[in-house]
């Protein structure tokens, strides 16, 4: 494992998390959550957990984002906070 890569990806993960809860547009928040999942996936690949990483990439980032987009599509897209 490469600790420099680990540090940089940890920073990206934190930035994505803060952005996801602060964006007013819910569709943008959901897409940023997908990016967060993929960065998490890179972090786990870096630590040697390949099974967890590809499960997260397919289930967490793929199916989760699709479910969220379907829900946002059927409800309102704007958020007040």
């Amino acid at each position: 494992m490469i600790w420099q890569l680990d540090l940089i990806i940890c920073l990206f993960v934190i930035i994505c998390a803060i952005a996801a809860i602060n964006v007013k547009d819910l569709l943008a928040a959901v897409i940023i959550l997908g990016a967060y999942s993929f960065f998490m996936c890179l972090l786990w690949t870096n630590m040697g957990a390949v099974d967890v990483a590809f499960t997260e990439a397919s289930v967490g980032a793929g199916v989760g984002t699709v479910l969220f987009i379907a829900a946002v599509n059927r409800t309102k897209r704007r958020s007040k906070d």
């Binding site: 819910l26 409800t75 958020s79």
Partner: peptide, 15 residues
């Protein structure tokens, strides 16, 4: 206050 934001927070905590 938004319920979708609450769910996003729950996902972040699980990760």
């Amino acid at each position: 206050k938004n319920l979708v934001k609450k769910l996003i927070g729950m996902n972040i905590m699980q990760s």
